[in-house]
Amino acid sequence: MAVRGVISYWWLPIFPACVWLGMLLGMLLWWFVTVDMDRSRLPSLDRNMYLPYISDIGAFTLKPLFIAGSVVTTVTFDLSFAAERWLRHKGRLVPNQTLLEKVLVILTILFAVVGTVGLICLSIFDTYRHPQLHDIFLLLFIGGYLISAIFICWEYQRLGIQHREHRVLRASFWVKLIFIFLEIGLAVAFGVLTFTDRKNIAAYFEWIISLIFTFYVLSFVIDLWPARRTKHRAMRFPKPRSPREMEESEASLPGRAHGANTNGHF
């Protein structure tokens, strides 16, 4: 019973964050310990680069690790999006009130799936054997999750206005907004450095972008944390009323049903 009290939905984003960070650190360790002195193991590596791209390491000996880490990270991370939507629908979290908010949720999940497909495919179509496909899927990965973050920020901004008493919504909004600006700035710098053939510096930016993604995944702990208090039905949020229910409720108010007779006879 004690274990049941500890395990909750907020654990969902912790697992993919640990998998992603562990994969990155494992690849870095493999580079420094094994390959740094024997660069022939990475045929795609530029001779002037002190640090390889992640995709250089993931194109050869550690390709199985790169594929497995990418698949596990993104698929389990997407469960956090699905859980957040389900918990709002069930009243375990602050529910979505308007049609726009529900559309924003759908777009958030949709573009997260695009990012998922991008990362899985770029790990399979490596930069050494499929350079053009790899670059396309890299754009899908970065663009998919960035656009997804924009939509979820928009959703949280609207929820935060309607529910100012729940400061966790505001905290999550600002964390994700900082992520968006950081990643856009770093992604632009990475692209410029890569296409101007300053790959040695660009590689450092790629690693920084990937490490920051870990903290974005962890930010969903903030979103799912309040659900631990709403396990019992009595503690859950009431479901938002439909427009029809609101009209019926207003019509049943005293003075509304007989409004024609309140100001005199006609």
Rank of each mutant, 00 (worst) to 15 (best):
D78W: 11
I136A: 10
A189Q: 05
P238R: 06
Y204K: 13
A257E: 10
T61L: 09
R198D: 11
G69S: 06
A59C: 06
R244S: 15
L140R: 01
A202F: 00
A251W: 08
G144E: 03
I178N: 12
H232E: 13
F77V: 01
H265L: 15
T214H: 12
I106H: 03
L93H: 00
T61V: 14
F125C: 07
L211F: 12
G259Q: 15
K102Y: 07
L104I: 10
D36H: 14
W20I: 02
A2H: 15
M246C: 08
W207M: 14
I152V: 11
A171V: 13
F77K: 04
L139I: 08
T196M: 10
L28R: 13
L224F: 02
L138H: 10
V94W: 05
F237K: 04
F32C: 08
K199A: 13
L122W: 04
A187T: 13
G26A: 08
V72H: 03
I180F: 02
S172N: 06
I222G: 00
N200F: 07
L110H: 12
V75T: 10
N263A: 12
D46Y: 12
F60D: 14
L65Y: 13
W207Q: 12
L139R: 15
F220C: 00
F215I: 11
F195G: 02
F77D: 00
F77Y: 11
R167V: 12
E250C: 09
R167D: 11
T98P: 01
W174A: 06
L122D: 15
F179Q: 08
G144W: 10
W207A: 08
I106Q: 10
R41E: 14
A112E: 00
A68S: 09
D78L: 15
V117P: 01
V105K: 04
R85L: 14
R229W: 14
F190E: 01
T61P: 01
F179C: 05
